[in-house]
């Protein structure tokens, strides 16, 4: 399967932020499917549920907003790292804040990166393009 055939999973409850993120990824040259889940529960169902990733290819990487409804981002991250089948999935935490405790906890739970979403769209786009390129071109994870 072509790597571009694998989707990117975006977990984000803000419709606006989701739209900016998708724009930035497209600008980074990611043309494949971007699956957008609106809360942590949906994300876990997508990754672990009976109708989820078992039948579907694993995403290339996960962009996970730290503050999503139902099951929060860090909890989703912890569950990913506990599940042998998907534990190696590259997961990037997106956050509005740079509260030091959040950053520390995210890395302690096994986040591959922590990105603070800047207010300036141009900056945001630049950061996400880097993240997207890194995980789709530079670095690949053995499934």
């Amino acid at each position: 399967m072509s790597r571009h055939g694998r989707p990117v999973l975006l977990v984000e409850d803000s419709q606006d932020d989701a739209e900016f993120t998708i724009r930035a990824l497209r600008q980074a040259g990611i043309v494949g499917v971007i699956d957008h889940m609106h809360d942590g529960e949906e994300a876990l169902e997508y990754l672990l549920g009976s109708s989820g990733a078992t039948r579907r290819a694993l995403p290339l990487f996960v962009l996970l907003d730290i503050k999503v409804p139902k099951v929060d981002g860090l909890e989703v991250l912890a569950r990913i790292r506990l599940e042998p089948r998907i534990r190696a999935l590259p997961t990037v935490i997106l956050s509005s804040s740079d509260v030091i405790q959040d950053i520390e906890r995210a890395y302690a739970l096994g986040a591959n990166s922590y990105v603070r979403k800047p207010v300036d769209f141009a900056e945001y786009s630049a950061v996400l393009q880097q993240v997207g390129r890194y995980w789709t071109r530079v670095n690949t994870v053995v499934p």
């Binding site: 739209e19 503050k67 509005s96 804040s97 979403k117 800047p118 769209f121």
Partner: peptide, 21 residues
């Protein structure tokens, strides 16, 4: 302070983002 830092910035991102779009 925690929720301020998370939630107050998001609408600003929308203002800036859509202006740029």
């Amino acid at each position: 302070a925690y929720s301020v830092s998370h939630d107050l910035r998001q609408p600003l991102r929308a203002m800036d983002g859509f202006s740029q779009v």
